[in-house]
Design a protein around this nucleic acid. Structure first.
Lengths: 186, 186
DNA sequence: AGCACTTATTCAACTTGTTGAGTATGAAGA
DNA sequence: TCTTCATACTCAACAAGTTGAATAAGTGCT
């Protein structure tokens, strides 16, 4: 019952197909929710049954048909009600890399080092993508102007959180690599 | 098959009961893995069946008996093998607060504001707890000395990541509150 | 005396999330 | 031409995670 809120939040930006959402989850909502495509399709079908979203089929000539989903009035109301609910469970994080780092001293430290390096590379990419998204959202305004005057600041605020997260991944990863290298050279 | 790795990582610190782990998950492993007590008990039982951990029953006079689990040689080997595996799936985050913030402009902004404020308070607490843990781990050494010379740096490195995460929660939350207040006063 | 809280765990039912495969079409590059 | 990639889904099976209740004994507070 929680994935649906993330989906409805994504649909506030306008109608989208399951496929759009599955792909785009990485760019827009990804920094605080993850889901596989199968999960999205299943949940969207259920939400349609319950009247939270409406689908319209778009026939395409040179591609498979697609179903575009949009929020219904009931969906909008449900989302509004959701924002008013008392703060539910706190952040859930599951990070395999940190599990590995935790047992680095009793494990294969070269492999863990490589995994950290990969994380650093991924964080760099993701940060760059988020930076482009940010530029697009700002559309020439300064951050200050935007935050003071824009119609909607929610998506920008969540983007900032995602950027901070990736920046930390980067910083921390570089520190960790440095520590491991120093210890290896010892 | 992933929770068990987190559990084994926690058992590297020494034997623990399911109850210890369930509680302590918040202090040690919590910053990168979460699980309910039921999940831990079930998984520990399975791991015992598979010989990854061994349990010994400790009879207690004024409390219920408890089963203390420790890593077996097979468990240690499995954990080592796990650290050598290619980097699996990336971080999964699920944060209801960010979902709410995302739809803040179409929702109950006062309630969302309150939820952010609560998050800020929680982050402050958690950061203080992590800071105490850090002091304990350092045991008088400077961070530099510790990282260069300690037997095990894994737990310290993961702690640093957790601290960075909570600091970001704090910073971001304060910024978000400020933005909302300015907009409300507009 | 009564109530809530902590320790320590178990059982059952349920909801979510993951994995793998399969279908169909067109476009782009070797 | 042949393979690979992108679009756009569906189905089935399974693994993981959540929720709620129950048990049992002691401790601390009013």
């Amino acid at each position: 019952m929680a994935l649906r809120n993330a989906l409805m939040a994504a649909l506030l930006d306008g109608e989208a197909s399951g496929y759009d959402l599955a792909k785009g989850f990485d760019a827009s909502v990804a920094n605080y929710w993850t889901a596989t495509p199968q999960q999205l399709y299943r949940e969207l079908d259920r939400m349609e049954d319950e009247g939270l979203v409406a689908a319209r089929v778009v026939e395409q000539e040179r591609r498979p048909n697609k179903r575009l989903f949009s929020l219904t009035a009931a969906g909008r109301a449900a989302l509004h009600a959701y924002t008013a609910e008392p703060p539910a469970r706190p952040t859930a994080i599951r990070d395999e890399l940190l599990v590995k780092v935790r047992c680095l001293d009793d494990g294969d430290s070269a492999a863990v080092r490589a995994a950290i390096a990969e994380r650093v590379a991924l964080a760099t990419d993701k940060l760059a993508r988020y930076e482009r998204l940010r530029t697009r959202l700002l559309a020439g305004r300064t951050e200050e102007d935007f935050l003071a005057g824009a119609d909607r600041v929610g998506p920008y605020l969540t983007l900032l959180r995602g950027m901070a997260f990736e920046r930390e991944n980067l910083h921390w990863g570089e520190l960790a690599l440095d520590v491991l290298d120093r210890r290896a050279a010892r």
